[in-house]
Write a protein that binds this DNA or RNA. Structure first.
Length: 338
DNA sequence: ACCATTTGACCGGG
DNA sequence: CCCGGTCAAATGGT
């Protein structure tokens, strides 16, 4: 194929799509803002990546569809030299095989299926620890933010590590919905040395869970701009808090720019006791079921002490925006810069 | 009692 | 072998 002309066309298409997507997103935000004036307590869906819970009103639904279309189209364009069919989900390359690490039965090989329920004492069943298949590389991108809950997803911390030559430990989070939906998204967060109030948040993979739809962002009027020079995207959101997040493309990816207005403590709520069971259906029905956020100020210097996490109640809620699914945009920019 | 976090062990890539 | 990433028992909070 003539890769040159191909690229040009692709580029133009992508250009248009990105624009369209952005407009749609803005529209959505505007509308949602209006909405929020009416119904104050409901969180709204933001980027409907296709699946729309039946709870939405027509406008939301329509917007979700529009966004979904852009999303899919972009992803198709993006993911392809070979045009795939539109049913291609959000899943993009990185997460295909290599990422089997989590959702597929990867660990099984280690466990040998002995899912020991009874907790054994340390030392007895050491063998299983750290047993996993390492992901090769899914999409990653890094965000610099003042708040670590700079996104609208619910995360659960699963580890923390001292990193060589760094003052602050790195914390590892995975999507809360991993057990229930097999969502592969993870992130790690590290306090910046030079600027301790800033966190470097690296996202790995994208969310495949849909539970967040209901609880996603509460949209607010905002204004963002994207600059795709140098593989660096700068987004500014003017929400209620001054936020300024810088997203750096790393390894070809990016773009969800998320901002945390004022919130910092998120808490996962187990509305009905077992989040592990099947809450996910609830996401569409249980009104709020909000993913409660749990990230916290754990990175404060005293994290080793007693309650680095604030468990009580979520006092403030992070606000953020995403214009497009990270993977899509990312590779999209990738093709731009290429 | 349940659940999220902590923390040390383990694994695999470089 | 080192180091980053993940697992899972233990711990602590609610």
């Amino acid at each position: 194929m003539d890769s040159n002309s191909n690229n040009t066309i692709k580029r133009k298409l992508v250009d248009q799509l990105v624009q369209g997507y952005e407009f749609a997103t803005r529209l959505q935000l505007l509308l949602s803002h209006q909405h929020s004036n009416h119904s104050t307590d409901q969180t709204r869906i933001v980027s409907g990546s296709g699946s729309v819970p039946g709870d939405l009103d027509p406008v939301d639904e329509l917007l979700a569809k529009i966004l979904g279309s852009f999303h899919k189209t972009i992803s198709v364009l993006d993911s392809s030299d070979t045009v795939a069919d539109l049913s291609v989900p959000i899943a993009v390359e990185g997460s295909r095989n290599a990422s089997c690490g989590d959702d597929s039965a990867a660990p099984a090989s280690c466990n040998g299926g002995d899912s020991v329920d009874s907790r054994k004492r340390l030392g007895v069943s050491k063998g299983k620890r750290g047993c996993y298949t390492r992901k090769k590389r899914s999409h990653t991108w890094t965000v610099e933010a003042r708040r670590i809950d700079a996104d609208r997803y619910a995360w659960r911390k699963y580890g923390q590590k001292e990193i060589l030559n760094t003052k602050f430990p790195r914390s590892y989070f995975r999507c809360t919905h991993k057990p229930t939906q097999g969502c592969k998204a993870t992130k790690h967060v590290q306090k910046q040395e030079q600027c301790p109030e800033m966190f470097l948040i690296t996202y790995i993979g994208h969310h495949t869970c849909n539970a967040n739809d209901q609880t996603r962002a509460k949209t607010e009027p905002f204004d963002h701009k994207i600059m795709d020079s140098d593989n660096t995207i700068l987004a500014e959101t003017i929400a209620q808090g001054h936020v300024n997040v810088e997203v750096q493309e790393q390894e070809k990816n990016i773009s969800s720019v998320t901002v945390a207005g004022a919130g910092m403590v998120k808490e996962e709520e187990n509305n009905n006791g077992d989040q592990n069971k099947d809450y996910c259906e609830g996401s569409s029905t249980d009104g709020d079921l909000s993913l409660v956020w749990q990230d916290a100020l754990m990175f404060d210097d005293h994290q080793h002490h007693q309650n680095p996490y604030y468990h009580g109640k979520t006092s403030t809620i992070a606000q953020q925006f995403s214009f497009i699914d990270n993977d899509q945009l990312s590779s999209l920019f990738d093709s731009y810069c290429a």
